[in-house]
């Protein structure tokens, strides 16, 4: 694993919001097919760090190296083009649109009619039906209902399915299990393992250490904008992680 070339490296990332330094020289490294758990107390800077990757915020300083190349991520489109997908707490789905419309949002299939390109709704529906059933293993009968009518777990599957369908190289999940029932949480773990098998890297932000220890390969701890811990999950122990998060043992810093 260690001789593998990292998919992503972030070096000395700084982010200031006015006078507030939300990220202070943060490093991060992740390999293809690796699951990285990102933990920390509220306001530690977790969301800020991943929003720099998704192009929602621009960094104040530092470098992003993607597949060995230095890159700039200035907006969401840059990030999508690199192959970075994200599943947010609200999953990033438009609840009033149906499954195919969400799956293909921003990347619609079209066809020519009389020389004019129009959306190929039928093809998108067939493709969604096939994909959702074969790859995600979900049997959603009425794909044409707005996704607000689906269960939380089904919605989650659609969101993650979108990342898989578009061959994301990395999927970022910011507290994806926060609003799910027990069964649905297990389903999420299963999907993360599938992504891993697919050689997709996953950054998994979560407040529940049980969940983190269940699926991640590596753990990174942020506290007040600084990276205070980074280790293999096998070498980490829960008690130690908790003290790093709350800052009772600052000496062990990275």
């Amino acid at each position: 694993m260690s001789n593998q070339k990292p998919l992503l490296e972030m070096k000395n990332i700084i982010k200031d919001f006015g006078g507030l330094r939300a990220l202070d020289n943060v490093d991060l490294s992740i390999n293809p097919g690796e699951v990285l758990g990102l933990v920390g107390e509220n306001a530690a800077g977790k969301s800020t760090l991943i929003k720099i990757l998704t192009g929602v915020y621009s960094k104040t300083g530092g470098d992003i190296i993607w597949e060995g190349q230095k890159v700039e991520i200035n907006n969401r489109a840059d990030s999508l083009n690199l192959g970075i997908d994200a599943i947010y707490q609200n999953l990033g789905l438009v609840e009033t649109l149906n499954v195919p419309e969400n799956l293909f949002l921003g990347k619609e299939l079209d066809k020519k009619v009389l020389g004019i390109s129009v959306l190929d709704n039928k093809k998108m529906e067939q493709e969604s039906r096939r994909f959702i059933k074969e790859i995600i293993g979900l049997d959603i009968k009425n794909l044409n209902d707005p996704v607000i009518n689906l269960s939380g777990g089904q919605r989650q599957s659609v969101a993650i399915g979108r990342a898989i369908y578009w061959d994301a190289k990395m999927v970022i999940m910011d507290e994806p299990t926060a609003s799910l029932g027990v069964e649905e949480v297990f389903k999420t773990f299963e999907i993360i393992r599938n992504l891993k098998k697919n050689n997709t890297a996953v950054i998994f932000i979560c407040h529940n250490l049980e969940h983190i220890f269940e699926v991640v390969d590596k753990i990174m701890v942020l506290r007040a904008g600084k990276r205070v811990g980074f280790s293999d999950v096998n070498e980490a122990d829960k008690q130690e992680i908790v003290s790093l998060m709350v800052g009772m043992d600052a000496k062990t810093a990275s």
């Binding site: 998704t54 929602v56 969401r76 489109a77 999508l80 994200a86 947010y88 609200n90 999953l91 990033g92 789905l93 438009v94 609840e95 009033t96 649109l97 419309e101 949002l105 921003g106 619609e108 079209d110 129009v118 959306l119 709704n121």
Partner: peptide, 28 residues
Amino acid sequence: YIMYRYSKYGRYTAAMGGDKEAAVLAGI
């Protein structure tokens, strides 16, 4: 009607009206 159902313009209008943030995240 054709623009609403069969063009990106219509689809993206519905998307940003349904959830602006999600539309932005989809690169719209």
